[in-house]
Design a protein around this nucleic acid. Structure first.
Length: 580
RNA sequence: GGGCCCGUAGCUUAGCCAGGACAAAGCACCGGCCUUCUAAGCCGGGGAUCGCGGGUUCGAAUCCCGCCGGGUCCGCCA
């Protein structure tokens, strides 16, 4: 809804720019695309475009603002979402009309969880997590998984048809080592699949450092797997699937599900990799260096090795084949990758360009390290997501036991699980992807009050009010949802109420921002702000004890808040408990 | 050595892309608020040379250059 307000402000401002002749000397594209229209604490929406024009027109921003405002005020349609345009010094402030507040609540009531969508069209394939199947997910993979999962949810919200994919790197050297380890030392059947595999992998890795024959064995195994030797394929399949089943179980705990798992080896077996090589030889400059095939790249300062000297394929070439395949199935590809893949993804884009395939959008996130340094699956130096979740849920359970002795054991466990997973997801989602993170166990277990639980708590409070209202017969309950009577939105006139409605209206604005920047942390912040605003309303405005017409209006506002909080949490992959 | 990213209160972060209304929050610390809808809440207080140094500008946390610190990548690993 906020986007509609911005559209109206934008239209009025553009008319004012034309009408005043102030932008006459400027070409359209010289103006900032959004006309510097942003949310503001001084108005419902505000533009600082006068500053921008001031330097070009050599006039004072204050004068420009007041000239623009006289035109903008005329341009604002009667009966629209804007009631007033005012110049405050150099700023142009737009104030929302009564209709804006009414419409926001009406649409939330009408659209429910669809509120805040953008109606975009198109098919997206989003690849995320894609941890090597040589061990359990650790907290570094967790960042990838959460960024990817939230983006998938938000892109769907925006209207895209999204398929999430997990690219299974089953052809790497480390998988051969894991398979070898499994063969030599067996897999501990008492352990979860991924944990059993990593045990064998770490042990084999260690031996590999000293045992030359094991190294040769691994290379031979890789070759046989690449050739499709049935025995090797079967060995691999067993280990990789064992590991993946454990990974999937972990992802399920986090409420993350991939639509498709794509095995890297498929592209070798299908002949796609061979065809990529042929095409690149034709369209690009491929040279032989010491038996290996190398693609010369112009933009990237590093050339790309396509094939080993012994004729076996390499990750990059298989990745090119994977992306060509994906590109045929969708309109847009998005990859969530760690910072270490940045150069590779640039090389991939350049290789794809040679073949006339549009590159994927790449979301790069910085590493999660431990206080003792970076993580390594191979060295067995990592914090597993399973362990983190176990401990956080345990900490959450202690909290719930302290606060809610009245709840049943089963209820407390449920709340602890929802709060624990939510806390983990929120703590990662709230940080901008390009920020390096250092994982600290103590900090992770200290469930931050302003994180997920804060938002969940606000939702529980709202739910509680509605539940009691239903018990008193003020609202009707119908299959889990509430049906509320019509109301007069003009009664919601206090600052707390207005501010809350304004925040609720911004869901589409935030969704748009996340989609545009491919950064989930804006949504995390939004959830916190809505919860904060609701808590202030909760303090200032009694609901159940208000006079009936006002009570009714406030119940509607509480309902709308619950809808927006629940939807925001859902997009973050966090459950919204009815009570906690 | 070169490329990219990060460096904002004791700690964790937002703001940086599109320079402007007082540098914004949380944790921790200090003080206040449960006879009215869950105190995982609310209100107030102290706490910041926005890594350092230059430059551009009427104006820089934000743009440009240099430096320092941390991370990461730099052909037959993935």
């Amino acid at each position: 809804m906020f986007l509609r307000l911005r559209q109206e402000a934008d239209a009025a401002l553009r008319e004012a720019l034309d009408g005043s002749g102030l932008a006459a000397d400027l070409r359209r594209e010289e103006l900032p695309e959004n006309l510097l229209l942003e949310e503001s604490e001084h108005a419902d929406i505000s533009s600082s475009i006068a500053f921008f024009l001031a330097s070009r027109l050599k006039a004072s921003p204050k004068d420009i603002a007041s000239r623009l405002v006289t035109h903008a005020a005329d341009a604002v349609p009667e009966g629209g979402l804007i009631s007033e345009v005012r110049a405050v010094g150099p700023y142009i402030n737009f104030h929302a009309s009564e209709l804006f507040f009414q419409e926001t609540l009406r649409r939330i009531r009408e659209e429910g969880c669809d509120f805040g969508g953008l109606g975009l069209k198109g098919r997206v394939i989003l690849e995320h997590t894609s941890a090597n199947p040589d061990g359990p997910l650790h907290v570094g993979h967790l960042r990838n998984a959460i960024i990817g999962d939230v983006l998938a949810r938000v892109l769907r919200k925006a209207g895209y048809e999204v398929e999430t994919q997990y690219y299974v790197n089953d052809m790497g050297r480390q998988i051969a080592v894991a398979v070898l380890g499994a063969e030599r030392f067996g897999l501990d059947a008492s352990k979860k699949g991924d944990h059993a595999v990593v045990e064998a992998y770490v042990r084999a890795s260690r031996e590999l450092d000293t045992d030359e024959s094991l190294r040769r064995e691994a290379e031979a195994l890789m070759r046989r797997y690449e050739e499709g030797d049935p025995e090797a394929v079967e060995k691999y399949r067993r280990v990789v699937e064992k590991c993946l089943s454990g990974v999937k179980e972990t992802l399920e705990r986090l409420d993350i599900k991939h639509d498709r798992f794509v095995w890297e080896s498929e592209f070798v077996r299908s002949g796609d990799v061979r065809r990529v090589l042929e095409a690149l030889r034709e369209r690009g400059e491929v040279v032989e260096e010491g038996g290996a095939l190398v693609l010369k790249l112009k933009c990237s300062e590093k050339d790309l090795v396509l094939q080993r000297g012994d004729g076996t394929s390499l990750y990059s070439t298989r990745d090119i084949a994977y992306h060509i395949w994906k590109s045929k199935l969708c309109d847009r590809m998005i990859d969530v990758l760690g910072k270490d893949h940045e150069l590779v993804s640039k090389q991939l884009a350049e290789a794809l360009a040679l073949l006339g395939v549009p590159p994927p959008d790449v979301v790069i996130f910085e590493f999660v390290s431990l206080p003792t340094g970076s993580m390594s699956t191979r060295a067995g130096k990592f914090v597993a997501v399973d362990e983190l979740l176990d401990k956080v849920e345990e900490a959450a359970l202690q909290e719930v036991e302290k606060r809610r002795p009245d709840m049943s054991e089963e209820q407390r466990r449920r709340v602890a699980r929802v709060v624990g997973v939510g806390a983990v997801r929120y703590d990662i989602a709230k940080v901008s992807p390009e920020k390096p993170m250092v994982f600290d166990f103590e900090q992770a277990l200290d469930i931050e009050k302003r994180g997920a639980p804060f938002i969940q708590y606000a939702h529980a409070r709202a739910s509680s009010i509605l539940r009691m209202a239903a018990e008193s017969g003020y609202v009707r309950r119908s299959d889990g949802d509430f049906s509320l009577p019509d109301f007069d939105a003009t009664l919601l006139s206090t600052e707390s109420e207005r501010t809350l409605i304004r925040e609720l209206s911004k869901l589409d604005y935030v969704v748009e921002k996340v989609v545009r920047e491919l950064k989930p942390h804006h949504l995390a912040k939004y959830g916190r702000v809505v919860a904060e605003t609701f808590n202030r309303f909760y303090r200032d405005c009694p609901v159940l004890n208000a006079e009936p017409p006002l009570r009714n209006a406030r119940l509607n506002l509480v309902y709308c808040t619950k809808v927006v909080l629940k939807e925001t949490l859902r997009l973050l992959g966090i459950e919204a408990p009815e009570e906690m």
